[in-house]
Design a protein around this nucleic acid. Sequence first.
DNA 1: CTGTTAGCGCTTTCAT
DNA 2: ATGAAAGCGCTAACAG
Lengths: 338, 338
Amino acid sequence: MGATVASISVHDVASRAGVSVGTVSNVLNRPERVSPETLERVTAAIRDLGFVRNDAARQLRAGSSRAMGLVVPDFSNPFFSDVARGAQDAADENGSVILLGNSDRSVARQGFYLDLFEEQRVRGMLIAPVGDVEQRLVRLRQRDIAAVLVGRSVPNSGLSSVSVDDVAGGERAVEHLVALGRRRLALVGGPSSMQAVIDRLAGARRAAQRLGAGLEVIETGALTILEGRAAGNRIVARTPAERPDAVFAANDLVALGLVQSFVMGNGLSIPRDIAIVGYDDIDFASSAVVPISSIRQPSVIIGRTAVERLVAEAGGAEQPGVDIQFQPTLVVRASTTL
Amino acid sequence: MGATVASISVHDVASRAGVSVGTVSNVLNRPERVSPETLERVTAAIRDLGFVRNDAARQLRAGSSRAMGLVVPDFSNPFFSDVARGAQDAADENGSVILLGNSDRSVARQGFYLDLFEEQRVRGMLIAPVGDVEQRLVRLRQRDIAAVLVGRSVPNSGLSSVSVDDVAGGERAVEHLVALGRRRLALVGGPSSMQAVIDRLAGARRAAQRLGAGLEVIETGALTILEGRAAGNRIVARTPAERPDAVFAANDLVALGLVQSFVMGNGLSIPRDIAIVGYDDIDFASSAVVPISSIRQPSVIIGRTAVERLVAEAGGAEQPGVDIQFQPTLVVRASTTL
DNA sequence: CTGTTAGCGCTTTCAT
DNA sequence: ATGAAAGCGCTAACAG
């Protein structure tokens, strides 16, 4: 009991099967080049001994890893866990592993994971970036580590990206709200330095202008339920005449917070007093106090596509610099249905 | 542009700094043994050349990896992403990386990740198990790969675990419901083969018996919002007299589904007609149509503790076989407040 | 304090 | 179809 078994190597397997290590390696990697009987014998030895290949050695010799790094800014946002799920599915099909890093929107932590993954010589990096990473990723590319941006594109950087047209998403949200007859709109979200917020706002502005509606910006410190609730409380504190009659939340977490604040004893009726559209269409949007209309991003598909792109580019097989952009779609629910 | 830089090795650094590779290794691993000037020179060379240590080689020679595998059954359940977050935080502090696997409640996929991580020679495995993994993990232990169970304990297996007392959680839920005056209780959850469901039900049964309340089991195929909604619809379809007056949902996702179904046009009032208690206290429980009372598990702390336990046991430093169990706590919200 | 050197376990020519 | 042997890049003795 508990007698620690020293790690079994190809040598042990080879001697047990009465062949050379080269043959064992062939069984592992190119079984078709091995005669049926030998294959059988080696396979049996592997099974009997409980041999498990040491991937570090494989990687050292072969020069390539089977891992890909994925860095997301916020793992507790279901949008990103959906992206991760899609990435993981695609990686599995490829025999790859995903190394996961949560940057928590900190540029430092993001850098930490980038370093770590580089030390692991990952095949590539998937990154939903915080701040400016272009330089860093371009440098990685020069070391044969492919990188794919998720959720943001950096034109002319030579970096590929998989994203959703956030400007269009902003437009769709505002168009929907205006079609409801609302004219005093507000975008709730922030910080305003986030590219997603910038783009969604740009789209919202454009549509508001075009359709003759007003658009105010109510900034939050982050895109969380808590910040959404705080922003909601600020809106509730205004006189009815000063309140917007519709809000576009920069993501569903914020929308969820807004709904909480409007409904919880504040007597504001959604959508009668204020209509709400969120963004991302996370699963929980439909189970809110008032089910929330939302701009859907194909999150799982984004993750999957990013991995596929990475695989295509890893090893220099294909040229990088491809921007894949999905179109968001509007999902209408009770928060905008009278 | 794009001229691929061949990977920089310790040799390159050594020759650029005019020292031997051994010294470079010392700078990397035991800087205190290197003279200040040499340290400075080598550090400069590392910076200038952009050297990044190859971890596969390090690991091959040093024999140990800095990665730990984490296998969870369902990544889109916020409970597990919270556990993962806690694990990741603790791993960071330890200079370790988390390899993440999502088993999707499939024993096959779980085995796939276990194999994969074993090939990576991870320092240890954190696993929120599906089905029977005891054998597998005990075997790993014999190969010096520590394993810590998350969310379930297997007494006498020699495996450490970090879990929450699910039986106590079930008791707390039922006690609360009975204290509200309810007597026709139902537990909604499944499949009944899940250990968490078994334990929570056992606790619920015990409390119901002790307090003289009835407890019916309404089984679901999984612990998801969708399944919760389906179960809710089945309850709504009954005659009022046949309906339970309180339900204990085996987790918050199910509770969320129940709430949706009861509220959506079915005219059932929560908690007047039916009170609801969930389990896990995920963030979204408080933003539901009716904020949901829930049995809270310290998810982030569970993840963190599991990693700490793993680190303590990895390398045989400490004896395994320690069961750490947290007590769940009841969080009361509108779904059980008249 | 620094240099030399022998592998870690595997893959991969190159012979046979 | 199989074997022999040379490393992949690094660390850890051991000398000096």
